[in-house]
């Protein structure tokens, strides 16, 4: 292991371990780090130099793929963009666990197949026109330009949501936010989100917006979605046909 004089902090990692057929436990690793590098770097070094059996998910290392979400001291973080300085200090302990509310594959890696299925079911478009949209309004920037949507399907919001903790059927904040894209709903999407397991199940805990690393603001989008659903229902009751 190379000695790096920039690694000025010593951090104690307590990492959740779970292999098939064995009880879950925590392993401790001492790692020298630079306070301004990212938690994922520390985890990768643990794998490279201390324990090759550690299983964890990662791909892009720059917050576009959404693979490296984990709990850091109980709080949802995207570890490739979370610095040590932002969560602890020299000599501090970091408890690293897999995201909540997803099946654990092994150690820190979780299976997000279910979330991807649901995103697919609500037809969230991964590439959108470059419009800037927040709870304060919609501002069209460059309609002729396309970009990848803000949501990176990292699952942090689903992990933080108290309703997702108690219900596997609840669609989840990421998916509801995904359905909120501009445009009218197809019938099957409407059935999914306008249901008791859809937009009406949210209880406004706001944890989803708080932990989102990508400016999606799912809490606002779920409320906006409710408005759309109510309008859609009213229009139907009054017999107004939707232009599709």
């Amino acid at each position: 292991m190379t000695e790096n004089k920039k690694y000025t902090w010593n951090i104690i990692f307590k990492i959740f371990r779970k292999k098939a057929g064995q009880p879950a436990h925590y392993d401790q690793f001492d790692v020298a780090v630079n306070p301004d590098e990212y938690i994922l770097d520390g985890i990768e070094r643990i794998w490279a130099y201390q324990d090759r059996s550690l299983v964890f998910s990662h791909a892009c290392h720059h917050s576009t793929c959404g693979a490296c979400g984990m709990l850091v001291n109980g709080e949802e973080k995207l570890t490739c963009i979370t610095t040590f300085r932002s969560v602890t200090r020299n000599g501090g302990t970091l408890r690293i666990e897999p995201l909540r509310n997803f099946p654990v594959i092994s150690d820190l890696a979780v299976d997000m197949t279910g979330m991807f299925e649901r995103m697919h079911a609500v037809s969230h478009r991964p590439v959108i026109a470059d419009t800037f949209e927040t709870s304060r309004g919609r501002k069209k920037e460059r309609e002729d330009l396309l970009r990848l949507a803000d949501c990176i399907e990292c699952g942090l919001c689903i992990s933080a949501c108290p309703i997702s903790a108690t219900s596997a059927d609840y669609i989840g904040p990421a998916v509801l936010a995904g359905a909120q894209q501009p445009g009218t709903f197809g019938e099957n999407v409407l059935n999914i989100v306008d249901s008791e397991d859809g937009a009406w199940r949210c209880h406004s805990a706001y944890e989803c917006t708080r932990v989102c690393p990508s400016n999606v603001d799912p809490a606002w989008r779920i409320m906006d979605l409710r408005k759309k659903l109510v309008l859609t229902r009213v229009k139907r009751m009054m017999g107004i046909k939707e232009k599709t």
């Binding site: 879950a24 709990l71 109980g74 509310n101 654990v104 903790a165 108690t166 219900s167 406004s204 944890e207």
Partner: peptide, 24 residues
């Protein structure tokens, strides 16, 4: 302690404010 899959018995998690924000 993690490894939590969604199920109704997790309702106790509703009352755990650790590492959670004002909304929670």
């Amino acid at each position: 302690m993690s490894e939590q899959t969604p199920k109704a018995v997790n309702w106790m998690k509703w009352f755990d404010p650790r590492s959670r924000g004002v909304g929670m």
